[in-house]
Structures are given as structure tokens and as C-alpha cells.
């Protein structure tokens, strides 16, 4: 016969088993309406970026000289550009370029910055000094100027834009991770792992790195928005993607000569950049509200 206490215990255990950090996170995150909406938008954009070439109503590279600079209509939802190319199709295909450039630049910066930050914070001493002073030097150039300098050095092109945006992201990630590492390494469990003979790599990877993840997630999201702005800005300045590519910054740049007569050529790619960056910033804000312990406590 089961006693009432056993039943109660099993119910408690069931409840405990049900608890998961991911569920807890989702419960808080779904209350952030703007961030949730922004996540859906970015999710759809990623799908569009992947299947873009298959769903684009027109060939984004095919000129149509009978339809130059046509305004938005049922046949061309976002109008056509100066070569008669369908802007909507170019935006769809361009989503892949914009997302790929920003994602790869930020993730490369994240990997490099995290490694440097972990080493700097964990080992301290001269390694810390060298890494942090190098970051200070990179910080002495404003972000976009540093990117411009790197592209000026390496030459224009989408790959060089990725390298430039990655390099200006590295010091920010390194400084953030270093700070979190300094905090985390004071924990007793780190000391315990060290005294049990765990290797530096194991301590860093298994015990310290997980402590930096929530801050990194927030920062990466915000940084993707900045990267999209920087990459499209470089393309706008003629330092990024080549003129025929359907990259959003390039589309905006080539359309500006027609601003007075056919403003949709400039407005449409601008809306695409604006909404995407806005969505990433809103997700970043939402994640910060949910994940940042300081805000949580307040």
C-alpha cells in the first residue's frame, strides 16, 4: 500500500524532474512580446535566406529593359531597379549575403575573442597584459574606421569585409569574456577542480566557459545588428560587395542616383537593413531582460 507521503514525494520528484533551464528561459522570454516577434521575423528571414533562390519570383541578375525603375506593383512587389531587375527578388537573395557576412564575422570574432578573453582572465600576468594592451590599441580606432582601414589595406570584397568586421569584434568579446572569467575563477568549484588535478583546458572549458555563455548570447545578438550595419555601410562606401551583387548596402548605394525620381530603389533595401538590425537589437534587449542577473534582481 502506498502511503500519502510517498505519493507526495513522487509528485514533488515529478515536479523537480519537469524543471529545466531551457523551459524556464522560454517561460520568461515569451513574455517579451517585441523580442518574440523579432525572433519570428529573424527565423523567417533565415528560412528565406536558405531557400531564397528557389522562391524568388524573378532572376535577381536578369535585366529587363522594358521595366526600368518601375514602382511597386502586383507584378513587382518592391518595384524594379535601374536595370529593370526585380528588387523583391534581389532582397530575398541578398538576405543570404547580409546574414552570411554578419553571422560569419561575428562568430569568428566570438571564437577568437572568447579564446583570448579566457586565456587573459584565467592566466593573468604578462599574457593578460599583452592581450589587453593589444585590445586597447584596437579600441583606439572607432569600429567602423578600423574596418575601413582593414578593407583599405586588403582591398574591397565581401571576404575582406568579413575579416574587417571580425577584427573589430574581437577586442569587445575578449574584454567581455575576460571580465566574466575573472569572476568565475573565484568560484570554489573552480578551485576544487584545480586541486583535483584538472588540466587548464578542462577547467576553462568545463567550469569557466559555461559561466560566460549568457553574457555572450546577449552580446552576440546585439553584435550581429552592428555587423549588418557595418557590412552594409562598407558596401555602400564601395568597399564591400561588388556592384552587381544583390547585397542590401550595394543596392542602396547604386539606387541613390535615382532617389529624386524613383525613391523605392533606395527605400526598399533600407527597410530590409533597418528591420533586420531592429529585430536583432530587440532580441538582444529581450535576452538581456531574461538572462542578465543584475536586471533580474532589480
Amino acid at each position: 500500500m502506498t502511503s500519502p507521503t510517498t505519493v507526495q514525494n513522487s509528485q514533488v520528484q515529478k515536479k523537480q524532474r519537469k524543471y529545466s533551464p531551457l523551459k524556464e528561459f522560454w517561460k520568461s522570454f515569451k513574455k517579451q512580446k517585441a523580442a518574440l516577434l523579432a525572433s519570428i521575423f529573424i527565423g523567417l528571414l533565415i528560412v528565406v535566406a536558405i531557400i531564397g533562390p528557389y522562391i524568388a519570383p524573378y532572376d535577381p541578375f536578369e535585366p529587363d529593359y522594358d521595366a526600368l525603375l518601375e514602382g511597386p506593383s502586383a507584378s513587382h512587389l518592391a518595384g524594379t531597379d535601374e536595370y529593370g531587375r526585380d528588387i523583391f527578388s534581389r532582397l530575398i537573395v541578398g538576405a543570404k549575403i547580409s546574414l552570411m557576412v554578419s553571422f560569419s564575422a561575428v562568430f569568428l570574432g566570438l571564437i577568437l575573442g572568447t579564446i583570448l578573453g579566457l586565456i587573459s582572465g584565467y592566466f593573468g600576468g604578462w599574457i593578460d597584459k599583452v592581450i589587453m594592451r593589444s585590445c586597447d590599441v584596437l579600441f583606439s580606432f572607432p569600429d567602423l574606421l578600423l574596418a575601413i582601414a582593414i578593407v583599405a589595406l586588403l582591398g574591397p570584397g565581401i571576404n575582406n569585409v568579413i575579416i574587417a568586421v571580425m577584427i573589430f569584434s574581437v577586442p569587445s568579446f575578449a574584454r567581455l569574456v575576460r571580465g566574466a572569467t575573472l569572476n568565475a575563477k573565484e568560484n570554489v568549484y573552480v578551485e576544487a577542480a584545480q586541486s583535483m588535478g584538472a588540466s587548464h583546458v578542462r577547467v576553462l572549458w568545463k567550469h569557466i566557459f559555461p559561466e560566460t555563455i549568457s553574457e555572450l548570447i546577449i552580446f552576440v545578438t546585439m553584435r550581429i545588428g552592428t555587423a549588418i550595419l557595418a557590412a552594409s555601410g562598407l558596401s555602400f562606401l564601395g568597399l564591400g560587395a561588388s556592384p552587381e551583387m544583390p547585397e542590401w548596402g550595394v543596392m542602396l548605394s547604386s539606387g541613390r542616383d535615382y532617389l529624386g525620381t524613383s525613391s523605392h530603389v533606395v527605400i526598399m533595401p533600407g527597410i530590409a537593413i533597418f528591420l533586420t538590425v531592429l529585430a536583432f537589437n530587440l532580441i538582444g534587449d529581450g535576452l538581456r531582460d531574461v538572462l542578465d542577473p543584475k536586471i533580474k534582481n532589480n
Partner: peptide
């Protein structure tokens, strides 16, 4: 505020030119 952070400067500039100058 969140729009101001997200808006590309080159786009905002062109929109302002179109509205206030042109």
C-alpha cells in the same frame, strides 16, 4: 531610441535629403 540605433546612417541621410532638400 531602438529605431535610432538600428537605422543605417546612409539610409537616414538619403531619406532626409529626399524629404527636406528635394
Amino acid at each position: 531610441a531602438v529605431s535610432g540605433i538600428s537605422i543605417p546612417g546612409f539610409w537616414l541621410g538619403l531619406l532626409l535629403i529626399q524629404l527636406f532638400s528635394v
